[in-house]
Design a protein around this nucleic acid. Structure first.
Length: 784
DNA sequence: AGCTGTGGCAGGGAGG
DNA sequence: CCTCCCTGCCAC
């Protein structure tokens, strides 16, 4: 097996591939530079044109149509190179069987389109076998962060400015730390020193916060300016850069992806957003906030606001250096916390570490299926066209303040249903879906058991990361069924999962009411209810839930998810909880949302506190106080400004507006006319100007940075109206008369809170909505 | 150079 | 005023 295949890569350099033996292949470029692969997982993609079979080594899942020619795609994954050769033979035979075109001999397989994955390529070359058998602690990780400061600093049009100075902080997990930069060091020298240090330390992984969007592009830009090669690759090559767009749930972010030969780049800013998709309680994605959130910020950590950096450089450079070092330390701790489960995923999936940190969950499990199909030499299905029609069951039965409250949820509802009903995509001939789901679930339980008996802290952390990497995969299976581009999707099966979940929940609700519990709010797999009068205290509540669980079908378990003093039930998916520790948790975008003006968020937070703890007099005073501060301009722009995310690029927005597909909005209009360059995923802060409350906001908005406290031009009438809109959220909890007394300054005879009571009421079901929970469907069986 | 799902609410703009 | 439609944000 010593065939030589020729082809071109993107830059038209001639390369050749030599298959040495069953487990080794050598790749040459024009400079006779060779790279040897040994038994690594390969993902070449084969495209068949009229004349040529083209193999693409770039692990891409994307189908291309090149220059109008029709290309057929075959996805292949290889653990062994002999498999690759077999697969080529397999594809040729399959093509000969299914199309009129005949491939007569292998000599026609000449053109190879090759783009080797640089990070894996050079790691193997340098003798590192990432990541088989490697521990997270073995990785040589380096944290990189830069601060820039200059009187004329503008990143968007970085020119050659002599007084621009950068501070580069580097740190690694071996306890080595350094901050470079100083008045007497020229920028080219500084950049060269930075490159030298990176190459000398030779890290496997480079970590940074927002490193893709700021640190690396900035360093690259400065290098280009000074005609220095940003040669931080393991082979001395500069990074390959391309624009990327990722989405986290409904949010999209644009960034520049850097591929550095032989190294993996981990951006904790991206990991943080990925983390937030499931948790949903981060207020910002900034490093400082995240460090506090995870409790990893040092107590004596130095904080310096962005606009003060130049001042500190001029007056207290040592403080600034300490601040910069604190940044890299926090980045390291954040990466410890967030990247470990991704690291373990690279040992299960055929993607490298850096790539895996950026891929979505569907791509992850699909790679599992593909690997198995290739191993079994089985053809791959096409995605089916269609739509999923159902989702989770949501209802609110009571509004107002009620308690005590028990929260019960069905553990792993959708995975459990898929396992119980043995659901698999129709196209999954090999039943890989069901087998992998079962296997991963077992592995996760085993790992959790091991974790419980582990004594050492680091071992527990590792096992926790491993079990959470299984969890990531397990939770992707359901979503994948309804994913339009999933090769193995099956919308009908997705609907079976959700409708089964709906029936289960309605059955549970009925059961709770049968025992005289009062169901308050339900969403998909969780129920908030008042336990029956004879169930008192945590122990009896737990037993009550356990009893409910025993009535559920085999394989479905209802868990005790929490108990609370009170719930303030507002609307579907919108409620507040008062814990036995007196902490208040508010959920739902209509009560509190990140886009809300800060004064509104704080008002609602305090108002909920007052209502749940029956402090009505204080609530009234709070309203008056905010109203007054708006009138008297004693409120800061940060408190009345609104911050919104630009989901689309400005180009897309302008195009849609031109086509009358969407209306103008303040956020995009400001971004368009701003001196700053905004891109998709950025957030913009603005406030409303003018005198009339009823104005078009897109014509009366300014960026927060334009506000001058000496000449406050915010629209007081508008913000008073906003205050009343926030207050209006609480109308369901008061009688009409009481509401107007509490949320108004017209208390001619003084305000008396003693007569004000909080109203709870049963929600009338919508006319269009059937009373399914009153007329439940017959008990279901999960066996068929 | 590549993307898991549905359900629900608020707010703004356009037009009746 | 109201309704319709769109986007953003959020729960699960």
């Amino acid at each position: 097996m010593d065939s030589l295949l020729f082809g071109h890569d993107n830059e038209e350099r001639i390369v050749s591939v030599q298959i040495v033996d069953d487990s080794t292949v050598r790749i040459y470029n024009r400079d006779e530079h060779s790279v040897t692969f040994r038994d690594e997982a390969f993902y070449p993609f084969f495209y068949l044109s009229d004349q040529n079979l083209i193999a693409d080594f770039s692990k891409s899942f994307w189908v291309k149509e090149l220059q109008g020619e029709n290309y057929y795609r075959y996805v292949c994954a290889f653990k062994r190179l002999s498999d690759m050769w077999d697969a080529i033979r397999f594809i040729v035979e399959k093509v000969n069987r299914t199309s009129q075109k005949k491939i007569e001999s292998y000599t026609e397989i000449e053109q190879i389109h090759l783009k080797a994955d640089t990070s894996t390529q050079y790691l193997i070359q340098s003798g590192k076998t990432l990541f088989k058998g490697m521990q997270f602690s073995d990785l040589h990780r380096l944290q990189l962060d830069i601060e820039t400061y200059s009187r004329s600093y503008k990143f968007s049009n970085a020119g050659r400015s002599e007084d621009r100075i950068i501070l580069i902080s580097l740190s690694d997990n071996r306890g080595w730390e350094k901050t470079l930069g100083g008045k007497n060091v020229s920028e080219p020298t500084l950049l060269e020193e930075c490159i030298r240090i990176i190459r000398e330390n030779d890290p496997d992984v480079i970590e940074g916060h927002n490193i893709f969007n700021f640190d690396l592009p900035y360093l690259l830009q400065r290098c280009q300016l000074h005609e220095t090669e940003f040669a931080i690759g393991r082979d001395g090559s500069p990074p390959r850069v391309f624009n990327m767009r990722s989405s986290f749930a409904e949010r999209e972010v644009e960034y520049q992806n850097f591929e550095i030969a032989g190294r993996h780049i981990i951006d904790t800013w991206l990991l943080l957003q990925s983390y937030d998709v499931s948790r949903r309680n981060l207020e910002s994605y900034g490093l400082k906030y995240a460090a506090k959130y995870f409790g990893i910020a040092a107590p004596d950590r130095v904080y310096i606001p962005g606009e003060k950096i130049s001042w500190y450089w001029d007056h207290e450079p040592e403080t600034l250096k300490r601040y910069a070092l604190d940044d890299v330390r926090e980045t390291r701790a954040l990466a410890d916390r967030l990247s470990m489960s991704t690291f373990f995923l690279t040992q299960m999936l055929p993607f490298n570490y850096g790539t895996l940190a950026r891929t979505g969950s569907a791509a992850k499990i699909e790679s599992l299926f593909l690997r198995e199909y290739l191993r079994k030499r089985h053809s791959i299905p096409k995605p089916e066209t269609g739509v999923q029609t159902t989702g989770g069951f949501t209802a609110v039965y009571y509004t107002g303040v009620l308690g005590p409250v028990v929260h019960a949820d069905v553990e792993s509802l959708y995975p459990s249903i898929m396992l119980s009903k043995k659901l698999s995509p129709a196209s999954d001939d090999l039943n890989t879906f069901q087998k992998s789901l079962r296997h991963l679930t077992k592995l996760r339980l085993d790992t959790k058991r091991k974790m419980q008996s582990a004594t050492e802290e680091f071992e527990r952390m590792q096992l926790d990361a491993i079990q959470s990497s299984f969890k990531i995969l397990i939770n992707s299976f359901y979503g994948y069924l309804g994913y339009s581009k999933g090769l193995f999707n099956d919308y009908a099966k997705a609907d079976i999962v959700t409708t089964t979940g709906q029936i289960l929940l309605k059955q549970l609700i009925q059961e709770i009411e049968l025992f005289n519990g009062v169901v308050i709010e339900v969403d998909t797999d969780g129920i908030y209810f008042q336990p029956p009068d004879n169930v008192k205290g945590e122990e009896e509540e737990r037993r009550f839930v356990e009893n409910l669980s025993s009535h559920l079908p085999e394989g479905i378990h209802l868990g005790f998810a929490g108990r609370y003093k009170k719930i303030l039930s507002y609307k579907k998916k919108n409620y507040a909880l008062l814990g036995y520790d007196d902490k208040i948790t508010i959920r739902g975008s209509s009560l509190i949302s990140r886009s809300m003006e800060r004064f509104g968020r704080s008002f609602i937070q305090q108002a909920v506190d007052c209502i749940m703890n029956s402090r009505i007099q204080e609530l009234h005073a709070l309203y008056l106080e905010i109203e007054r501060s708006l009138h008297e301009h004693t409120i800061d722009v940060r408190d009345f400004g609104r911050t919104e995310t630009l989901k689309d690029s400005l180009k897309e927005y302008e195009r849609d507006v031109a086509n009358q597909r969407r209306n103008r909005t303040a956020s995009y209009e400001l971004a368009l006319h701003s001196p700053e360059k905004y891109k998709a995923g950025d957030r913009i802060s603005y406030y409303i100007t003018g005198n009339d409350a009823n104005i078009k906001s897109f014509e009366n908005a300014k960026e927060v940075s334009e506000w001058d406290p000496n000449f406050p031009d915010e629209n007081v009438a508008y913000y008073l109206k906003r205050l009343d809109e926030f207050a209006a959220k609480f109308t369901p909890f008061f009688s009409e008369r009481n509401f107007h007394a509490v949320f108004s300054s017209e208390d001619l005879f003084g305000f008396d809170a003693s007569s004000v009571s909080i109203i709870s009421r049963k929600v009338q079901a919508d006319e269009g909505e059937k009373h399914e929970w009153e007329n439940p469907e017959p008990s279901i069986s999960l066996d068929n």
